[in-house]
């Protein structure tokens, strides 16, 4: 296994080194990423400066939703976010270079970059999570401990899978690749808020098409023993791993089709 992964270890290692070479610009990028994380949270803060509950969640619970969703998204962004630049890889011939190497193209794309500066936003989300968790009145059980430990991982997997889905679609769209942002970044944005504020069609969209609700809101309902909007089965909060598997299944099939389309039509 270790030997199988050696190429990727070397690739990721060299990417990381190249980023930290210029220490000053790396630090400023890192701070920029922290600032973006704070900006996202400022929105939640301002809303709760005016109201006590939003979508049946109080500030502490809403902060928990925000934090879990953002830990997941910022981790996925760190690991796979560059897949969103597929058109750039196509234009600069990087994808052709990947095709000429004896490794799977998707694995090469994912390991071709690790944006360490995005750790800034991860850090902000983790801090908010650490502060928000004790502020919530949770009746801890072993199952809930497992759930809170698992949720950031499944959230990362869901958003990473969404990025790969987006990259797959971009094989066709290229120039119009921003279409996919509505679902990747839009999904991430929506996932930071209690889904109960959305209309039913939107809730269905962000649960079953773009499974953003699984990354934070639904697990938080379970953690806090809240019923959620009418018609929401309680067990849905445990289904995040299934959502992650489903997203990745679609992502891998889509990627295969996208790559076929690319080698079929050429650039």
């Amino acid at each position: 296994m270790g030997e199988r992964l050696r190429p990727y270890r070397v690739l990721v290692g060299s990417r990381m080194r190249s980023q930290t070479t210029y220490r000053r610009s790396f630090v400023s990028d890192l701070l920029g990423s922290v600032a973006i994380g704070l900006m996202e949270f400022a929105e939640v803060y301002v809303v709760f400066a005016n109201v006590d509950v939003l979508g049946d969640l109080d500030f502490a619970a809403a902060a928990l939703v925000f934090a879990l969703a953002n830990v997941g998204f910022s981790m996925a962004d760190l690991l796979v976010g560059h897949a969103d630049n597929l058109p750039v890889y196509l234009r600069e011939g990087t994808l052709d270079a990947f095709l000429l190497r004896p490794l799977p193209v998707l694995a090469q794309l994912i390991t071709s970059d690790v944006s360490l500066r995005r750790l800034g936003r991860v850090a902000v989300s983790v801090v908010i999570l650490a502060v928000a968790l004790p502020l919530n009145d949770i009746e801890w059980t072993a199952a809930k401990v497992a759930l809170i430990a698992l949720t950031p991982l499944t959230a990362t997997a869901v958003f990473a899978g969404l990025f790969v889905c987006a990259a797959a679609v971009q094989f066709w769209l290229v120039e119009g690749s921003e279409f996919t942002s509505a679902f990747t970044y839009g999904g991430a944005y929506a996932s930071g808020y209690p889904a109960s504020i959305f209309s039913l069609p939107m809730r269905l969209l962000f649960t079953f098409v773009v499974p953003a609700a699984f990354t934070a809101y639904l697990p938080v309902l379970v953690l806090l023993d809240l019923p959620g909007p009418p018609g929401t089965p309680h067990w849905l909060g445990w289904c995040a791993p299934l959502a992650a598997v489903a997203v990745w299944a679609v992502a891998l099939l889509g990627w295969r089709a996208g790559l076929r389309h690319y080698t079929g039509t050429g650039s």
Binding site: E3, R6, P7, R9, V10, L11, S14, R101, P102, L103
Partner: peptide, 9 residues
């Protein structure tokens, strides 16, 4: 070169 050596195992 190091990366390529790893890629080609």
């Amino acid at each position: 070169f190091r990366a390529l050596a790893a890629i080609h195992r």
